[in-house]
Nucleic acid binder design. Structure first.
Length: 557
RNA sequence: UGGCGGGUCGUCCAACGGUAGGACAACGGACUCUGGAUCCGUUUAUUGGGGUUCGAAUCCCUGCCCGCCAGCCA
């Protein structure tokens, strides 16, 4: 899919390889990831991060982390640290190349004066409302600002006085002098600087004018010697402007290359919409395990390897897409399957008394920690006369395809014994309260000496040794594939996306897990110990359930 | 109906004038001390119409459809 030999390259890597081959920029590859510190990173950003940092790594280049902090109204330090943490967690390193657009404010200002001296920028006194009217529409050309032909010296003087704080906010702008009739609206004399008295998270009150994105971004790239500047499709229209500034100034000229951003089914990806879910209390926070944020995925128990694998699999192209959430789920399971220790966890406990087992008897049985990883070793798990099994692993009147426990039927307790159900205990309402079984002492470890087969192997936990825990079950946040297509986003929320199961019974080995540790509860799924855990009450989050063939059988009928 | 970009299996990505392929999903089977995992197999696609060519997903023309753009946001 990408760089493996035999696989095809995406269009961006094709460009990069061609540039290296042709010796452009002396064969140098230098990219950057330029987040605005105004929110938390999500899996869409992971695609950009893996592209920016990943391509630099693949081609022996460098990738800078640069915060694009040109608008103090929206930005805050609070986000800087979380963004850095998420990028590191994903597995990338900017070494000593941490930059801020605000580091270049002075340089940007000098370049602006240069544009004025070259006669290609002017101070405009139009109000925001007037600017809008002068701009024209998609189908009609704009009109020249009456201030467009101001003498150069006057522009320079006015711009210096803008910086000096002589004019109120919004009263003037510095504009590029391009073409008010351009069919590309971005080229209709776009603003370069606005007057804005707002304290900046890094420069404080030293500036009352701030550069606009289109002007600032190409300069940031140029100053840092970026060779390939990747961004999303909506900036395609801005590329002529990116090139225009650099050409007027005659400075180092990186190449902007646009690719399609990630969309995922059953979720939304915009900071604004995700923020709304947080504010409305639909989710518990930016790191709610249902959120597509990196912090949410991390809390859910997803590992960075799974995300990187996912990004490699979705490819890189320019067309709009809506990637199936099932692919992400697959990557998560595939990764966890290889790495996770298996433990026993009974989510919906049903007590089983093994009547022919010694009253106070206890023994330890050997369990394989991870069948997918020989090096993971084994551990000892306690067994006793009273155990819990999953309530759904017993059917009093078994469905014709049901292979597990039923009256008179024998099943295997994983790595333990074959047991047979001899009696069903019920309360006055007829609800099953427990089972009575017998075990075959000769089947210790799980195999019958006579070679007889059983229909199923089920998981279990010794009752006196069980650790009681809360398990939080998560499902997709939205009921529909494309929530954005719906008129009311909140009405498409999946009401079953979160369910808490109290009183789950886990095997004692689970007690040793630290927060953030992910295990497989055999036959159920992958679960991650949540930081909300206390000594008395551990909390586990469902990361991903195991494929459930039984459920499919039922669904089909 | 201005400009820019894009339309290939259900989904995502390949094929760069020469047999439309992979992954996920779905379906069927094998195997199994997880109804997990694994393995095998099956189904399904070039936006319509014209051209150029021995040969077109690919080049040309022309429709159709989708996305983005009218912040002193990024």
């Amino acid at each position: 899919m990408t760089t493996e030999e035999g696989g095809s390259l995406d269009f961006i890597r094709e460009i990069v390889e061609r540039d290296i081959r042709e010796g452009k920029h002396e064969g140098r590859v230098h990219t950057r990831f330029p987040p605005e510190p105004n929110g938390y990173l999500h899996i869409g950003h992971a695609k950009a991060i893996c592209t920016d940092f990943g391509i630099a790594r693949e081609y022996g280049g460098l990738c800078n982390l640069r915060f694009d902090d040109t608008n103090p109204v929206k930005e805050d330090v609070e986000y800087v640290e979380s963004i850095k943490q998420d990028i590191r967690w994903l597995g990338y390193d900017w070494e000593d190349r941490l930059y801020f657009a605000s580091d270049y404010f002075e340089q940007m200002y000098r370049y602006a004066e240069e544009l004025i001296r070259k006669g290609v920028a002017y101070v405009c006194d139009l109000s925001p409302e007037e600017v809008r009217r002068y701009r024209g529409t998609l189908t009609e050309p704009g009109k020249d600002s009456p201030w467009r032909n101001r003498p150069m010296e006057e522009n320079l003087d006015l711009f210096r006085r803008m910086r000096a704080g002589e004019f109120p906010d919004g009263s003037r702008t510095l504009r590029a002098r391009i073409d008010m009739a351009s069919p590309n609206i971005n080229m209709r004399d776009p603003a370069i600087y606005r007057i804005l008295r707002r304290s900046h998270h890094r420069t404080g009150d030293s500036w009352c004018i701030y550069p606009m994105y289109d002007y600032a971004h190409c300069l940031e790239d140029s100053i840092e010697g970026i060779t390939h500047s990747f961004c999303s499709i909506e900036f395609e229209d801005h590329r002529p402007l990116y090139d225009w500034f650099l050409d007027r100034l005659g400075i180092f000229h990186p190449q902007q290359i646009e690719f399609a951003r990630l969309n995922l089914t059953y979720t939304v990806m915009s900071k604004r919409k995700l923020g709304m879910l947080v504010e409305e209390g639909v989710v518990s926070g930016w790191d709610d395990p249902r959120m597509p944020t990196l912090s949410g995925l991390r809390r859910r128990g997803v590992k960075p390897e799974a995300i990187r694998d996912f990004v490699n699999r979705i490819g890189l192209a320019k067309r709009d897409s809506n990637v199936d959430m099932a692919l992400l789920d697959y990557c998560i399971r595939d990764d966890l399957n290889r790495r996770c220790t298996r433990i026993m966890g009974v989510l919906d406990p049903l007590k089983v008394t093994i009547e022919n087992y010694p009253e106070d008897g206890t023994e330890e049985l050997e369990f394989i920690n991870n069948p997918e990883d020989e090096n993971a070793g084994t551990r000892m798990v306690p067994f006793s006369r009273e155990i819990f099994i999953e309530r759904e692993d017993f059917q009093e009147e078994p469905h014709r395809k049901f292979k597990r426990l039923a009256p008179g039927r024998e099943v295997r307790l994983r790595y333990a014994y074959l047991i047979r159900c001899v009696d069903v205990e019920k309360d006055s309402d007829g609800r099953i309260t427990g089972l009575v079984c017998t075990y075959d002492p000769g089947t210790r470890g799980g195999n019958a000496p006579d070679g007889r087969k059983v229909g199923a192997t089920i998981h279990w936990v010794s009752a006196p040794h069980a650790v009681v825990a809360d398990v939080r079950m998560y499902d997709r946040l939205f009921k529909v594939e494309n929530p954005l297509a719906e008129e009311d986003l909140l009405s498409t929320i999946n009401p079953d996306s979160f369910r808490i199961i109290e009183g789950c019974m886990l095997e004692p080995a689970s007690a040793g897990a630290g927060n953030g540790y992910t295990v497989q509860f055999e036959r159920k799924g992958y679960f991650c110990k949540d930081p909300d855990s206390t000594e008395a009450r551990p909390v586990w989050n469902l990361t991903a359930s195991l494929r459930d063939t039984w459920k499919r059988i039922l669904d089909r009928e």
